[in-house]
Design a protein around this nucleic acid. Sequence first.
DNA 1: CAGATTACTCCACAACTGTAGAATTACCTG
DNA 2: CAGGTAATTCTACAGTTGTGGAGTAATCTG
Lengths: 200, 200
Amino acid sequence: MTSAPAPRRGRPPGDRNTRARVLAAARRMFTERGYNAASLRDIAREAGVDAGMVRHYFVDKAGLFRAAMDMPVDPSALIASLLSGGVEGLGERLLRKLVTEWDDAGNASAMIILVRSAMTHDESNRMLREFISRQVLGRIAAAVDAPDRELRASLIGSQLVGLVVARYIVRVEPLASADPETVVAAVAPTVQRYLTGSIR
Amino acid sequence: MTSAPAPRRGRPPGDRNTRARVLAAARRMFTERGYNAASLRDIAREAGVDAGMVRHYFVDKAGLFRAAMDMPVDPSALIASLLSGGVEGLGERLLRKLVTEWDDAGNASAMIILVRSAMTHDESNRMLREFISRQVLGRIAAAVDAPDRELRASLIGSQLVGLVVARYIVRVEPLASADPETVVAAVAPTVQRYLTGSIR
DNA sequence: CAGATTACTCCACAACTGTAGAATTACCTG
DNA sequence: CAGGTAATTCTACAGTTGTGGAGTAATCTG
């Protein structure tokens, strides 16, 4: 790993920090509209920049999307740390993390982008399915010592995705405005039952 | 070699039942891609018909969408009949109805159209929110004699929407291929708890 | 100073979109 | 048979989309 700052040559970026602005605008647009409906020109306008910059920095719309999906926190590490506390009370920890994380992420979470895009964009759909299966549910399933581990994990997935859609995307009331602890208290037992309870 | 019959101009002889074919094609396309991503030309091609027919029969894309959303069964009547059995075991009845209905609807349910479209199309988003609130949750909330009726109802909504997304849209395994009764057995207690159990 | 390299904008293109009107043909009523 | 109406396709238009190339400006290295 060369930590050397790389002999920067050529024209330095002005104090506009364009790349980051484009990325931020892309995240906003993708969360709001999903992959297809967020146009490059809209994103560029939002960033106060010419549309050509997207090509300059990210080559493609797909490239921009990939860059926008590079999440700040590694979800697998996050989940691993959640799991380290054991299965007892995992439902509650999982849910609290999810809700508090997304409440103040101000709608700009990669997960929301993915959910929203997955409805109309094939690649996103595949990404979401694989992300849920491998990164989230796979790990949970591995931690659960019960028959039907995979089924249990995907049931959890269904409740979590449903919560995201209802609270953050479609915004069904009063769930959308309910305070975090209320949501945690209400939904955690569901997740815990899918984890360790009887499901047959 | 003229393999294609070369579309003759003007009114063709016989009864082609075009309106119904366009409508069916529209339902298929809307379920597969959502409102925005399903183009009029694609729908017309799917129906084996010129795109002008949409205008002829439905005026607008919005008009076509409205027509495609005119559901064969009135959901409010359906829900009312489910509710008539009382709150006892309602979770199970609700879930069984939902799962069996959609499993053999072959993916062409109006609900799936709505869920899929709601992610990118503002009007659909509004429609879904209002449909869930008024038609489904409103009625359920009215039948539940407990504090937090609306919150309970929207929690149910979150689990149901999550199930739809996970099983029918994103197709997370093994939930997507699980047999109906397994799903009912696993999820019904969740719904029942949201209905009558403790949520605080 | 001369390149080289990067940052950035402008313009063009082909494809696709929803909408609109005109033209053509078939069927129905009298 | 005459005339109207419905059914259908064709052509056109203005807008938007992702992409690509060309050109300009700023800064670096040598």
